[in-house]
Design a protein around this nucleic acid. Structure first.
Lengths: 253, 253
DNA sequence: CTTCGACCTTCCCCCTAGGGCAAGGTCAAG
DNA sequence: CTTGACCTTGCCCTAGGGGGAAGGTCGAAG
């Protein structure tokens, strides 16, 4: 009858694979001939093809062993399940393929679509690409850490940019990146930002940015890119603290 | 910024996976905070999503690392290749699904289609299911070991069954399965078979079945199922040997 | 101030489905 | 009689993580 190699060739697997199936109890060990070689009959061919078909469908070998001793109705129920699973896997692969093409075209969306649109708008409004990139990183981290809060803040930010005065302040902030840290224009800008901030959010409830730790870390990395921005941040914090203690003497440190 | 768990949740992987990507040099190790925790920035989110997209497309991690340092044209060429690979995998999965359904419906073809058709014909011609099953096993092993020879023999077998005399002999052979091994009908049958065999194949060139080892083994397992068949086989061999030595005295044993 | 649950760190072993190789026995052909 | 193609068992190796141990850290609540 068939040697292991002949069986392997007719079914299209390696001899190793067949031995593994023996070890795991999927395919019964056949009788040996006088020199200890395994000898297979037609049943083995049919059995191996069945095992292979299931295995190629992604069924774990342990499961195939279970199924090999299962009654017909159980077996057919399992086949249905495997079929559905296969359909799901095909759909997922197609989805992955679409994602891959998005990646190739640079169309992968880390951020909600409206945030991406907003970031594109920024350059139209006169902001530098550097500013847009910085905002992008900022929103990525925001949406990653506090998705709900991020959504609110984002809406507020979009809203703020519709105000010409605020928009001009942001634009000036952007431009200040390359100024000398000692430039007096920074003090005027800080003054303007503090005034508008208090006007917009009230003096008692300082914007959450000043309290939560995430934005502070973000601000830190933003500052790292420019000494002028670092000084600007420091000036703004100083003035906001002053405004805070004037309005509410209970606030210390 | 982001801890490993936050990064993992936003991208949809496990923290373990991220550490593996660090170990394999896919994603650079980020800076640590004061307590030794990894802290990730927005770049890391984008990088991880890219890695994940490729990984889900089935690209090995080692390949992803190569690609991460590849120039844009090389990278896009690779993406094309991966896309094609994905298309091929989807096609293969669909094929596997079809095979699975064939398995569920008992429609798996171990043998060439015309052999299966022939086996179905057998029952129409009056052969028992047991005979058909035996023939099936026989052809499975034949086609597995010597595909070309098997094809010729099979054509010869189909041809033989169109002869009413031969067909009747085979039918009688089938029916003899449950006879007593001492039944005189067996001797008559053996006589008829030998006569027809010599008539068909000539006495000098005995059918190859008598020489090659595979068919002998098959005949052995066929005999195991019935003492009457075993005796019949023995009678036929004896008479063929006689006929052989009469026609050609050089043939011994 | 402690304590609790949810994080984080490194280290090490486990899994699947086999591949590869070694060291040795067997077989058929020239 | 050798040669090349088989076969045998046994052991280690792989990718892509999962699970858990042993220990450090964090924020909030009592």
């Amino acid at each position: 009858m068939l040697t292991i190699g002949q069986l392997a060739r007719t079914v299209g697997v390696s001899t190793k694979t067949i031995r593994v199936y023996h070890d795991k109890g999927l395919l019964p060990e056949p009788d040996r001939d006088s020199s200890g070689y395994r000898r297979y009959d037609a049943q083995a061919v049919a059995g191996l093809i069945k095992i292979r078909t299931l295995s190629e469908a992604g069924v774990p070998l342990a499961r195939i062993r279970e199924l090999s001793t299962a009654a017909a109705p159980v077996f057919h129920e399992a086949l249905d399940e495997i079929d559905n699973d296969l359909t799901a896997r095909i759909r997922k692969l197609r989805h992955t393929q679409q994602r891959l093409r998005d990646l190739a075209a640079g169309r992968i969306h880390i951020l909600p679509a409206e945030v991406d649109r907003h970031l594109q708008q920024l350059e139209h409004l006169g902001f530098t690409p550097r500013w847009a990139a910085m905002e992008r990183d900022l929103w990525v981290v925001m949406f990653a850490t506090l998705p709900d809060t991020a959504k609110d803040w984002f809406q507020d930010q979009v809203d703020a940019l519709t105000d010409p005065v605020l928009r001009q302040l942001y634009l000036t902030y952007d431009q200040a990146h390359d100024l000398d840290p000692g430039d007096p224009a920074l003090e005027a800008l800080a003054e303007g930002i503090v005034t508008e901030t208090i006007h917009r959010y009230g003096s008692a409830s300082l914007p959450a940015e000043a309290n939560s730790s995430i934005p502070q870390l973000l601000q830190g990395s933003v500052n790292d890119s420019s000494p002028a921005w670092q000084r600007l941040d420091s000036l703004i914090r100083h003035r906001l603290r002053q405004a805070g203690t004037e309005a509410d003497p209970s606030v210390h440190s």
